[in-house]
């Protein structure tokens, strides 16, 4: 895969004094692929993106673009199209001039500039706004100009730094689908920084989950959700119930708070996704079943989320169909059940 990678990060390290912002990052992005760098703030995802863009020098490691080492190539010779979180539109230039900026720097002929800008304006539905200044645009329009400015130069790699974070929730969803469509159509190799796991899940081919400078897991959205490699990934991607399973007195597994478990593997940390839990009224015995009191019931539209408070103190997360709210009221006794297949072992802790 590394041979064919469009963008290849090899052992990237960035230190600030004694603080390590990025610790040994290895990541290969294939042509036309969209990879999300996902993690909480301060995890090193933005630093990684800025090393790729050429704004931050790596302390160690290499960056390869189509096999060529660009680690020491200055930003303006890297051929990256970047969309900034703040958009960083030139406030003194019109929409058209903002989009044309990169073309002018590349010495593209005037007529062709006009043509390509017009195409981008049409593609991004910015018609009629060409002469406006950035501050005369709405947030969504500004975002589209920023995207157009980055794409019009046909960059080798598109870098997106939280491009949706300044949009309101309604606009955000539509915009990210639109961007994904554009990216697929144009076959753009894209590195995308976000702290929003739902966003990453929605549009990425693969997700690189980062924490404290380390790459925790790299995989497709399904992989990282269904088979989280670490406790951190399990907790960060979606909601999770975690069990520290150890061999119990009867030979079976038992969690740290005494819940008997029946799982495919041996002693390990197991993830139980809330939607895999079934909630019933009648008590049940044996492994993979536990009784408690319904503490919270929240209606989410497409379903219901419940918290079952167990005698040992654990708050077990449960998600089910809306009908769940008809069968249980807060304060009611209930039993949670699941099957061995619902428990996924985390390989490393």
């Amino acid at each position: 895969m590394n041979e064919a990678a469009e963008l290849d990060l090899q052992g990237l390290v960035r230190r600030y004094g004694s603080t390590v912002a990025v610790a040994r990052m290895d990541l290969a992005v294939a042509k036309g692929e969209l990879v999300a760098l996902l993690g909480p703030s301060g995890c090193g995802k933005t630093t990684t993106l800025r090393m790729v863009a050429g704004f931050v020098d790596p302390s160690e490691g290499r960056i390869l673009l189509r096999g060529r080492d660009i680690t020491r190539v200055p930003a303006h010779k890297r051929d990256m199209g970047m969309v900034f979180q703040s958009y960083a539109l030139f406030p003194h230039l019109s929409v058209a001039d903002n989009i044309a900026f990169g073309l002018h720097r590349r010495g593209v002929a005037k007529a062709e500039v006009a043509q390509r800008v017009a195409r981008m304006v049409a593609l991004l539905k910015l018609d009629g706004l060409e002469a406006r200044l950035p501050r005369q645009l709405s947030g969504g329009q500004q975002q589209r100009v920023a995207v157009g400015r980055a794409l019009v130069i046909n960059p080798a790699v598109v870098l997106l730094d939280e491009p949706f974070s300044n949009l309101d929730a309604l606009l955000r969803e539509g915009t990210r689908i639109e961007l994904r469509r554009l990216q697929t159509e144009l076959g753009l190799t894209t590195l995308f920084v976000t702290h929003d796991q739902a966003e990453a899940m929605a549009i990425s081919d693969r997700i690189a989950v980062m924490n404290q400078g380390r790459l925790e897991q790299l995989g497709t959205p399904r992989e990282v959700y269904e088979r989280p490699a670490t406790r951190f990934v399990a907790g960060f991607i979606g909601r999770a119930n975690l069990f520290e399973a150890k061999p119990g007195a009867g030979g079976g597994l038992v969690s740290e708070d005494g819940i008997p478990l029946d799982a495919a593997g041996g002693a390990a940390t197991y993830v139980l996704r809330p939607e895999r839990v079934t909630l019933v009224a009648e008590p049940a015995d044996g492994a993979n079943a536990v009784s408690g009191t319904v503490e919270v019931l929240s209606f989410l539209g497409n379903g219901v989320q419940a918290v079952l408070r167990l005698p040992g103190g654990r708050a077990l997360l449960v998600e089910g169909a809306a009908a769940l709210a008809d069968r249980f009221r807060p304060g009611a006794a209930a039993t949670a059940r699941w099957t061995p297949a619902d428990l996924t072992a985390i390989p490393q802790v």
């Binding site: 970047m82 990169g102 720097r105 400015r149 870098l159």
Partner: peptide
């Protein structure tokens, strides 16, 4: 002046002095 404006100009192909 947002520093990213200079970064944006550079990533679009402007040498630092030009940016």
């Amino acid at each position: 002046i947002d520093r990213d404006l200079e970064h944006a100009a550079m990533s679009l192909g402007a040498a630092p002095v030009v940016a």
